[in-house]
């Protein structure tokens, strides 16, 4: 019988690995970047807002002792995405993990939704993942290895009202995840989608009543599962995960 391995929760199980986390300046993305860096990975975090991004990169570098580099990038803009991947290769020479976490939402009924809002939400949540996924696949196919995790939402499974663009983007993301997985398969590239429910980030500021009613998870709960997914051996993939508060109104009819 194989010796039972005791776990090393603060080990360096990602030493030598290089990761990009989009939207890594705050919220879930910053939490995931911290978990990866804690395990010894070199991480590139990106976002549009420079100040908050650079503060995050400094904080995570100090806290973890790993290299966490800030690259300002709007993931909805092709040239900026290409420049970020080039910068990552210049810095670290390879790319093992891409986490597509950046995203945004607007809250209004379809009848009130300006076209600009639709475009903004589709662009940052869906088109962005085509742009980053395309660059990542190009690199990972050469390496014959790599892992992409797309942060979806339970909105990819069941819609909320007042969120048509967001829901369309996240359901669309499932299609993109599956397509990237199919096209990366022959080269051993794992592509997955983690669909989380309510998670306590700045998006929830001022919404305490709703959070209490529906239940809410902490950033570390989501980041911990993302870490478990990237610690799986090459060749093993969590294609689809759904993570919610137990109380979340999601399982039954409504």
């Amino acid at each position: 019988m194989a010796e039972i391995q005791r776990s090393h929760p603060t080990g360096k199980r990602l030493a030598g690995k290089v990761a990009i986390v989009t939207g890594g300046s705050t919220g879930i993305g910053k939490g995931i970047a911290r978990h990866f860096a804690d395990e010894g990975a070199s991480v590139v975090v990106c976002a549009r807002g420079k100040e908050r991004l650079e503060a995050a990169s400094k904080e995570l570098t100090q806290a973890t002792g790993s290299r966490v580099e800030a690259v300002v990038c709007d993931v909805g803009v092709e040239a900026q995405v290409q420049a970020m991947f080039k910068r990552t290769l210049d810095l670290f020479g390879r790319l093992d993990i891409l986490v597509n976490n950046a995203g945004s939402n607007t809250r209004e009924l379809v009848v009130d939704m300006p076209f600009a809002n639709w475009n903004k939400v589709i662009n940052s949540n869906l088109t962005a993942v085509f742009l980053t996924g395309r660059e990542a696949l190009r690199i990972m196919k050469k390496q014959q290895s790599g892992r992409i995790i797309n942060i979806g939402s339970i909105a990819a499974k069941v819609p909320r009202a007042n969120s048509a663009a967001y829901v369309a983007a996240k359901v669309g993301l499932t299609g993109l995840t599956r397509s990237l997985a199919l096209e990366g398969r022959a080269d051993g590239i794992a592509v997955s989608q983690l669909n989380n429910g309510n998670t306590r980030t700045d998006r929830w500021l001022g919404r305490d009543e709703q959070a209490a009613k529906e239940g809410i998870m902490e950033i570390d709960d989501v980041a911990g599962i993302a870490l478990a997914m990237v610690l799986l051996p090459d060749g093993v993939n969590v294609l689809d995960g759904t993570l919610t508060a137990v109380n979340m109104p999601f399982i039954g009819r409504g």
Partner: peptide
């Protein structure tokens, strides 16, 4: 996971 948090679904399979 802490009490109150649930991973309702976890689909996992070989990449190939």
């Amino acid at each position: 996971l802490p009490d109150g948090v649930n991973m309702l679904e976890c689909e996992m399979l070989p990449v190939k």
